[in-house]
Simulated scan of single mutants.
Amino acid sequence: MAVGDRSKASSKERVVLGKITSVYGVRGWVKVYSHTEPMDNILNYNPWYIELNGRVQAIEVDQGKRHGKGLIAKLVGCDDREVARSYCGVDISVDQGELPELEEGDYYWHQLEQLNVVTESGVELGRVDHLIATGSNDVLVVRGTAQSIDKRERMIPYLPDQVVKEINLEAGTIRVDWDPEF
Rank of each mutant, 00 (worst) to 15 (best):
Pro38Arg: 02
Ala133Ser: 12
Thr36Asp: 04
Pro100Arg: 12
Arg127Thr: 14
Tyr33Arg: 11
Gly25Leu: 00
Asp161Glu: 13
Leu115His: 10
Ser93Asn: 03
Glu166Thr: 15
Arg127Leu: 07
Asp138Met: 12
Arg152Phe: 02
Gly97Ala: 10
Gly64Thr: 14
Thr36Met: 08
Glu98Trp: 08
Thr145Trp: 04
Ile149Gly: 00
Glu82Ser: 13
Val3Lys: 12
Arg55Ala: 10
Asp79Trp: 06
Val90Met: 04
Glu60Gly: 13
Asp129Val: 12
Ala73Cys: 04
Ala171Phe: 09
Val23Leu: 00
Pro47Leu: 03
Val3Phe: 04
Gly126Ile: 10
Asn44Ile: 06
Ser22Glu: 13
Pro100Leu: 07
Val128Ala: 10
Pro180Phe: 10
Glu82His: 11
Leu131Ser: 07
Val163His: 05
Met1Asn: 02
Ala171Lys: 15
Ser34Ile: 03
Leu159Asp: 00
Leu140His: 03
Val163Leu: 07
Ser22Val: 02
Glu153Ser: 06
Val30Leu: 09
Val94Asn: 08
Val163Trp: 03
Arg85Lys: 15
Asn137Trp: 13
Glu13Asn: 15
Gly64Ser: 13
Pro100Phe: 01
Val94Arg: 08
Pro38Met: 01
Ser93Tyr: 00
Glu101Thr: 13
Gln57Val: 13
Glu51Ala: 00
Ala58Trp: 00
Val123Asp: 10
Leu99Gly: 07
Lys19Cys: 11
Ser148His: 05
Ile20Val: 15
Ile42Ala: 01
Asn41Val: 00
Glu104Met: 12
Ile59Gln: 05
Gly28Gln: 05
Asp5Tyr: 14
Lys151Thr: 14
Tyr49Gln: 11
Gly68Trp: 07
Val176Pro: 00
Gly70Met: 06
Glu37Leu: 05
Arg66Pro: 10
Glu103Gln: 14
Val16Asn: 03
Gly54Gln: 06
Leu131Val: 11
Tyr87Leu: 10
Gly54Asp: 05
Gly105Pro: 09
Thr173Val: 15
Ser93Trp: 02
Asp138Gln: 11
Ile20Phe: 09
Gln63Met: 07
Leu140Arg: 04
Pro38Gln: 04
Gly144Glu: 10
Val90Thr: 13
Ala9Gly: 05
Arg66His: 10
Glu170Met: 15
Asp80Cys: 11
Leu17Gln: 00
Phe182Asn: 15
Leu102Arg: 11
Thr119Ile: 02
Arg154Glu: 09
Leu102Glu: 08
Ala84Phe: 07
Arg85Ala: 14
Leu99Ala: 08
Gly122Phe: 09
Asn41Pro: 00
Gly135Arg: 06
Asp95Gly: 14
Ser148Cys: 07
Arg143Tyr: 06
Ala9Asn: 02
Arg66Leu: 13
Phe182Thr: 15
Ser7Val: 07
Leu43Gln: 09
Lys19Thr: 14
Arg66Val: 15
Glu181Lys: 12
Gly28Asn: 07
Gly89Lys: 10
Ile92Ser: 01
Gly126Val: 09
Cys78Phe: 01
Ala2Gln: 07
Leu99Phe: 07
Val26Asp: 14
Thr145Ala: 06
Trp29Tyr: 06
Lys19Met: 14
Glu51Ser: 06
